[in-house]
Amino acid sequence: MIEILFQGLTLGGLYGMIGAGLALNFGILRVVNLAHGELITLGAFMAVGLIVVQPGLPLPLVLAGAFLGCAVLGGFIQAVFVERAMSFRDPMVAMLVTFGLAVMIRNGLIETLGADLRGLDVGGLGQAGFRFFGVSLGLLPLVTLGIALLAFAALAFLIFRTRFGREIRAVSDRPEIAALMGVRVKRVHMGVAALSAGLAALAGVLLAMRASVSPFSGVAHLLIAFEVVVLGGLGAIRGVLLAGLFLGMVQVIGARFDPNAGLLYVHMAFFVALALRAATGRLKA
C-alpha cells in the first residue's frame, strides 16, 4: 500500500510538472502550445548532452542548465514567432505556429542526434534505496517527487508573491488595462513563455532520469500534459498538481492489476473525470 502510494505520488508529481508549463502558457497567453511536448523532450536531451560534455555534473546544475537553455529558447520563440501570431484574432494561428515549431524541434533533434532512445545516467542514485515502514523504496523516485514539489512551490511563490507574478496575473485578467498601467505586456508574455519552457525542461530531465526518451516522445508527453491541464484547470497551479497526482495514482494502481495496460487507465480516468464534471455542471467553469 505504501509502495503504491509512493509510486503514485512520484509519477503524479512528474505528470503535474509535465502539465504545469502548458497550463501556464494557456492560462496566461491563451496559446495552446503544441510544441510543449517537444520542449519536454528537448529539456531531456539538453540534460543528456550536459552529462556527456561534463560527466559527473551535479544534478542541480544539470536541472539548472536544462531549465535555462529551454527558458531562453522559449522566450526567443515567443518574441520572434508566437507574439506576432497572437496579434491575429483567430487563436488557431498561434496554435498552428506552435505546431510548426514542434515539427521543427522534433526534426532538428533527429537530424542532429539521431532517433535513438536516450536516458540520463544518474549514477548510484538509480539503485539507491531506503526502508520506510518495512517497505523498500527507491531514492530516485523520492528525489523526483521532491524536485517536482519544489518546482511547484517556487512557481506558486513567483506567481502569488512577487511583482512579476502580479504582472502575470494582471496581464492574464486584462492585458489592455495592464498595458495602460504601464505593464510591459510583451515582456511579461516572454517571461511566461520562458518560464513555461523551463518547466517543460525540468519535466524532461525528470523523465529522462527514470526512463528513456527519444525525439518522438513529445507527442505522448503532450497528451499527458493536456489531460493534466484539462482536469486541473487552465492556469491553476494547485489544480494542475492535484490532477497530475490523481492521474499518477491511477496509472500505478492500474499497473498493479494489469501490468500491460500502459496509459489505458490514465486515459479512462481522464474521460470519467470529464464526464463527472460535465454531469455536475462544472464544465462551464
Partner: peptide
C-alpha cells in the same frame, strides 16, 4: 471599472506604480 479580478485590492493598486 475593469479591475483585475485575480488581484487583491492592494495588488490592483500596486500594479500601476511602476509607470511614473
Amino acid at each position: 471599472r475593469l479591475l483585475f479580478d485575480s488581484l487583491t485590492i492592494e495588488e490592483n493598486l500596486l500594479i500601476g506604480q511602476s509607470a511614473r
